[in-house]
Simulated scan of single mutants.
Amino acid sequence: MTLVAGVAGQPIAHSLSPVIHGAWIAAAGLDAVYERFGPADADGFAELVDKGRAGTLCGLNVTAPFKEQALALADEASATARTCGAANLLVFEDGRVRADSTDGMGLMAALAEQAPALDVRGRPAVVLGAGGAARAAAAALKAAGAEVGVLNRTVERARALADDLGVTVVDVGALGEAALVVNALSVAPTIDLGALRADAVLMDMTYRPLVTPFLAEGRARGLTTVDGLAMLIGQAGPSFRALFGIAPPDVDVRAVALNAMGEAG
């Protein structure tokens, strides 16, 4: 029987997850498909999860705006997902739903790949934003030993995140000491990159475009930058293993994804 998995979000047409997982499925010779699902609203997402419980799907990656709902609908959840307060992965088995979050693993994998000289242990790291992406970033960086600060226009949201995760709320003055600044906003942040350390690393969790205005300005200032595609691929690996029960084959999925985006490597 063909295994059916996919990614659920709204909007979803832009997602590169089917391209990445599809390349691995083909290389592994699996009888499986990985599709895009675009529920219109929370009710639609709940119906999709019910299909998973019924055995129609083996699992889902989940993106905005359904990550918090994904966790709430699960029968069991990993400690990471509970800490983040959201899940980007649901696995269906015997009518039960298991939730996990692989976003943090994706973030750390991206840093290891594109900023290998960075050691966040004991170093200040500033996360821009206070939504689900920011929660995953802050949780992963704290677990890796960083001194995490959250900077957000709405201080109340930043404080709620900080209280939940045991990190701190910071102001723009913290940027001057940061070894790492992660943009977890869906838009370009309005911060003065000239205030950053010369050896600071910038990361953007957005991958369209590959080089966001935030990263482009950082590169122009000579800073090391980490793109969102590296994180997307980094979180996809453990997701693939959970969904299909095997490790991802050795395929250059970054090249495949860049080709789908119409960008050169």
Rank of each mutant, 00 (worst) to 15 (best):
R254M: 13
V169C: 07
T168M: 05
P189R: 02
A140L: 12
A216R: 15
M261C: 01
E156I: 09
I246C: 13
A216W: 04
M261L: 15
L258A: 06
A200S: 05
A136D: 09
L185D: 09
R221C: 08
V150H: 04
A188W: 01
M261K: 06
P213M: 06
A188S: 11
V226A: 04
R121N: 08
T168K: 15
A188E: 15
A236K: 06
P238F: 04
A230L: 05
V120C: 03
G176V: 00
N183L: 05
L232F: 10
F244T: 07
G173V: 08
V256M: 02
P209E: 03
M231I: 14
R241Q: 13
S239W: 07
D164I: 02
T168A: 15
A195I: 03
G228Q: 06
D192Y: 03
L202T: 00
A133F: 09
A130Y: 13
S239I: 08
Y207T: 11
V181Y: 00
T212W: 12
V127H: 05
I233N: 09
V126K: 02
R153Y: 03
A247Q: 01
T154M: 04
A178Q: 00
A162F: 10
V187D: 13
L180H: 03
R135A: 15
L161Q: 12
V167A: 00
A216I: 00
A184L: 03
G145N: 06
L243T: 02
R221G: 12
M261Q: 13
A130S: 15
A136Q: 02
V169F: 12
L243G: 01
T154I: 04
A247M: 06
A184T: 10
G176A: 14
Y207V: 07
G237C: 14
G234D: 08
F240A: 11
P124V: 11
R254E: 14
A144N: 09
T225G: 05
L165W: 02
A158P: 03
D171G: 14
L141F: 11
L128Y: 02
E177R: 14
R121F: 00
G131F: 02
V251Q: 10
L185P: 05
V211L: 14
A160N: 06
V211P: 02
L193V: 07
G245W: 03
L141P: 11
L128W: 02
A138K: 09
P249Q: 01
A195D: 07
A260V: 11
F244D: 12
E217M: 10
A198N: 01
F244S: 08
F214I: 08
M231Q: 03
V253I: 07
I246E: 11
V148Q: 12
R254I: 08
L185N: 05
V256T: 14
A179W: 03
F244V: 05
R219T: 00
V148D: 01
A236N: 07
K142V: 00
D164H: 14
A230M: 05
A188H: 08
A143N: 13
L128F: 05
K142D: 12
E177Q: 14
A230W: 11
L223C: 09
T224C: 14
